[in-house]
Amino acid sequence: MKPAQFDYYAPASVEEALDKLAELGYEGKVLAGGQSLIAAMNFRMARPGSLVDLNNIPELSYIKPTADGGLAIGTMTRVYAVEHSPEVAKRFPLLPEVAHYIGHAQIRRRGSFGGAIAHADPSGQLPGIAKVMNAKCLIRSKGKEDRWVDAADLIIGPFMTVIEYEDLLTEVVLPPNPPRTGSSYQQVARQNGGYALAACASVLTLDDKNKCQDARLILMGVGEMPILSDKVKEILIGQEPTEEAFKEVGEAVQSEIDPSSDLNGTSEYRRDLIRVLVPRSLALSLERAKKGS
C-alpha cells in the first residue's frame, strides 16, 4: 500500500499557495492535515498529480475572536487545537463536544479544521457542524475577489463542494449565538472514533418567555450530505419546547432524510436512530439553553 508518484510543493504563504494552485489547475490538490487524503493515496484510490502542502503556512493556523463575539478559525488549525481551546469552549461548547468524536486523538492532532470541512465526507462530523453553526467560509483564489460562502451552500454533494481546483478555503467564521442558547451533539457509532451510523446536532435559543426563539438541527450520516432540518423550525419556533414537541420533530424529520443501508446499518435502523437521537439532542440543548446566560 504505497502511494503513486506526485509532485510536491510547500508554499510558505497563502499567496504562494494560491499562485501554485492557479498554475496547477486540475492537476493540483491541496494537502491539509492529510488524514483522509493520505490514507486514500496509500490505497491508490486517490492519485493527485501534484500536492500543494499547507502545513508550512503558519498564518493559516489560528483561533481569533471576531468583533461581534464570534470566532475566526484558520483552515489549518488542528482539530485537536479546536477541541482543547478555551476560547472555543467558552463560545461554542458544541465544537469540542463534537471534535471529541472525530477519529482518534492521533488523527485529531494532525487533521485540520478547514480540511475536514472542505473534504465534505458525508460521514464526517465537521461539515454538518459548520452548517448548523451558520459558519461562513472564506474562499480565496488568485486573481479573484475573496468569497464568503455560507457553510450551508458550501457542500453540494458527497465529497463535493463549491471549492474549485484553484480555490483555497482559508478561514471559517462562526457567528456568535444569542444568549440563552444551548447546543448538543448525539451520535451512535459502532466504536469510539469510528464513523457515526447516524448523528445529529441541535442548537436551541430561548426567548424570555422560555419559548423557542430559534431552533437549528443538522442530521448526519442519513443522506448524501448533512441535512439542515426545516421541520425543526416549523415545529419549534415560537413554541414551548416540550418533550412531546421534540418527539414530533424526531418523526417529522423522517421526511427530510434518506439514509442508505450498508455493512453497519440498515436504512430503517438509521431512520430509527434519528427518531431516538433528535429528541435526546433537543432535550439536552434545552437544558443547556436554560442554564445559558
Binding site: Q35, H104, Q106, R109
Partner: peptide, 21 residues
C-alpha cells in the same frame, strides 16, 4: 498504512501522530 491501527505512532514536534499518514 491507513491510519487505523496506531502501530506507527511517533512524536512530531512533540505530538503523537500516525507516521503512515
Amino acid at each position: 498504512e491507513h491510519g487505523m491501527c496506531g502501530a506507527c505512532t511517533i512524536l512530531f514536534d512533540g505530538e503523537p501522530v500516525r507516521s503512515c499518514l
